[in-house]
Simulated scan of single mutants.
Amino acid sequence: MTIEFDENGHALSEGVARVYHYDPLTGEYLGANDETIPEGVSIPGSSTLFAPGEYAAGRVWVFASGTWTLNEDYRGQTYYSTKDQHTIMIKEIGPPPSDYVALAPTSPFDVWDGSSWVIDKEAEQKAAIDSASGGKTQRLQQATDTINPLQDAVDLEMATDEEKAQLTAWRKYRVLLTRVDTSTAPDIDWPQAPTA
């Protein structure tokens, strides 16, 4: 038996109707069931008698303004900014932001060329040089911090033969460090620090 409804949506007679439920906030299709509708009562809130279309992967049916529309659905997926690699997790129905892509970059130096990520060789080289320069500065400081007290011991004629040998080894090491060309990074053959 088909239930008829008046202009206010109330059943004109009691019966069972197939009801299609949707989320009251997003309009997303939630499912259907058969409801017993008493005479004079309307269907439950956030539901309709109109069926959505067929399921489609990556899409979701949304009910709005009295009709179903099939919308893109990327919720739960990670997208990457084509400007700065910033990541977002898609949380809402609809397409991702236009400057985000699903393809993940493979390095911190990747840039988007319009269809794929490519390595910015200049940025990669600059980062390697900056890292090598920082490493050189650290090593030189370590050498100087080790040399200073050894030199004091020699200057005050208090150094042992072992301390004199260590001073010479650390000074040679410091000279070799000053000759390291960081512009060749990451291909640097660092001199070996003396052992204590």
Rank of each mutant, 00 (worst) to 15 (best):
M1A: 14
M1L: 12
M1R: 14
T2Q: 13
T2P: 09
I3C: 02
I3K: 02
E4S: 14
F5N: 15
D6F: 10
D6A: 04
E7Y: 04
E7L: 05
N8F: 15
G9P: 03
G9W: 09
H10Q: 12
H10G: 06
H10A: 14
A11E: 08
A11F: 05
L12T: 14
G15N: 11
G15I: 07
R18C: 08
R18L: 13
V19S: 00
V19Q: 00
Y20A: 01
H21T: 01
H21P: 00
Y22C: 02
P24E: 00
P24T: 02
L25E: 15
L25A: 08
G27D: 12
E28K: 03
E28G: 09
Y29R: 01
Y29N: 00
L30P: 01
G31K: 03
G31H: 08
A32M: 07
N33H: 10
N33D: 07
D34S: 05
D34K: 02
D34Y: 07
D34I: 00
E35W: 12
E35K: 09
E35M: 14
E35F: 13
E35D: 11
I37R: 00
I37T: 03
P38K: 09
P38E: 10
P38Q: 09
E39L: 14
G40H: 13
G40W: 09
V41S: 13
V41K: 15
V41D: 11
I43V: 14
P44C: 11
G45I: 03
G45K: 11
G45A: 05
T48M: 12
T48I: 11
T48D: 02
T48K: 11
F50Y: 06
F50W: 02
F50V: 13
A51V: 04
P52N: 12
P52A: 13
P52F: 06
G53T: 15
G53L: 10
E54P: 04
Y55N: 08
Y55T: 07
Y55S: 09
A57F: 10
G58R: 11
G58D: 05
G58P: 08
G58S: 07
G58V: 05
V60T: 14
V60H: 04
W61D: 06
W61N: 07
V62D: 02
A64Q: 08
A64W: 02
A64I: 01
A64S: 08
G66N: 12
G66K: 12
G66F: 02
G66H: 10
T67Q: 14
W68S: 06
W68A: 07
T69I: 13
T69F: 03
T69N: 15
L70I: 10
N71F: 03
E72D: 15
E72G: 08
R75K: 07
R75A: 03
G76A: 04
Q77K: 15
Q77M: 10
Q77D: 09
T78L: 14
Y80M: 08
Y80A: 06
Y80S: 06
S81A: 11
S81N: 14
K83R: 15
D84E: 08
Q85K: 12
H86G: 05
H86K: 08
M89I: 12
M89D: 12
I90Y: 01
K91P: 00
K91Q: 07
E92L: 05
E92C: 02
E92A: 09
I93V: 15
I93Q: 15
I93G: 12
P95W: 00
P96F: 02
